[in-house]
Amino acid sequence: MESMARGGTRWKRFALVMVPSVAATAAIGVGLAQGALAASFAVSGQEFKVEAGHLEGYGFAQYGGLNEGYESTTSDKKVKRPVAISTFETATINDMCQSVVTDVPLFGKVTMKLTAGEGASEVKAKNLYLDISNLEADATFTNIDIGVAAKDTDVRRGGKGPEVKDRILPNSFAQQADKAVLTGAKQKAWATTAGTFTLGGLKMALHKGDGPDVECY
């Protein structure tokens, strides 16, 4: 668990490059039209892990979609990947962790780990989009509709289907609920966007290596 953020000039340069990217991930949708960015930017060639002890969200919808991004971190070739798009009008998260592993020349694998919402702090998001490839959690839904058409998920629940219609089949399977509560959530994702993303108690550190000892899980 020893942080490797200290040391020589190369580490400092690496940190200077990575810190702005953390800030961009945390607030990438601020000031943009609601939902516009979720459908427009090309994701990197890396998945990242997100863990949440407790997430309480309102205006929930989920449907399948496509995510366009780079084939890998070293390739300019773009590919489309299937994802499960989960959206929330508002969400509050406790004990959040995000980690991504990067191969750094001469150093090998380095894990960038971000935590927030620990103790009395909270993470709050509005118009939150999660492009997920894998999810494990205990979930409770209030007033859930299963099997609604993706294009109709905003009719009664505040979902965001029509706003990302260029990435989904409008009549495809979707589900929506007034409220969703996830506990012990572990997910892998290609992208997270939000209209606003407020992270209480934000901490970021770099660790040499990868695996559950330095990543979120």
Rank of each mutant, 00 (worst) to 15 (best):
residue 67 N to C: 11
residue 116 A to T: 04
residue 43 V to T: 02
residue 182 L to H: 07
residue 26 A to L: 15
residue 208 K to T: 06
residue 7 G to Q: 03
residue 171 N to P: 01
residue 90 T to K: 14
residue 153 T to E: 03
residue 93 I to Q: 05
residue 27 A to K: 13
residue 25 T to N: 01
residue 138 D to Q: 08
residue 197 F to Y: 15
residue 213 D to M: 07
residue 99 S to Q: 02
residue 26 A to Y: 09
residue 55 L to M: 09
residue 67 N to L: 14
residue 53 G to Q: 01
residue 67 N to F: 08
residue 135 L to E: 00
residue 78 K to T: 07
residue 197 F to D: 01
residue 27 A to R: 14
residue 41 F to Y: 15
residue 39 A to Q: 14
residue 11 W to T: 13
residue 61 A to N: 00
residue 89 E to Q: 14
residue 117 G to R: 05
residue 30 V to F: 13
residue 32 L to Q: 14
residue 11 W to L: 12
residue 128 L to H: 13
residue 160 K to N: 10
residue 128 L to Q: 07
residue 36 A to G: 10
residue 25 T to P: 01
residue 132 I to H: 04
residue 135 L to I: 12
residue 141 F to V: 08
residue 150 A to K: 02
residue 175 Q to C: 06
residue 53 G to R: 01
residue 107 F to P: 06
residue 150 A to G: 07
residue 207 H to C: 04
residue 205 A to S: 06
residue 79 V to M: 00
residue 51 E to D: 03
residue 150 A to P: 05
residue 63 Y to V: 03
residue 177 A to E: 03
residue 136 E to Y: 06
residue 1 M to Q: 14
residue 15 A to Y: 12
residue 55 L to C: 02
residue 217 Y to H: 11
residue 71 E to M: 06
residue 202 L to W: 14
residue 55 L to A: 07
residue 97 C to A: 00
residue 131 D to I: 08
residue 185 A to N: 06
residue 52 A to T: 08
residue 117 G to S: 08
residue 138 D to Y: 15
residue 153 T to K: 06
residue 31 G to K: 07
residue 115 T to V: 07
residue 158 G to N: 01
residue 83 V to E: 01
residue 152 D to Y: 10
residue 58 Y to D: 07
residue 72 S to M: 01
residue 192 T to S: 13
residue 216 C to V: 03
residue 90 T to Y: 06
residue 162 P to F: 04
residue 43 V to M: 10
residue 198 T to G: 05
residue 144 I to W: 05
residue 33 A to W: 09
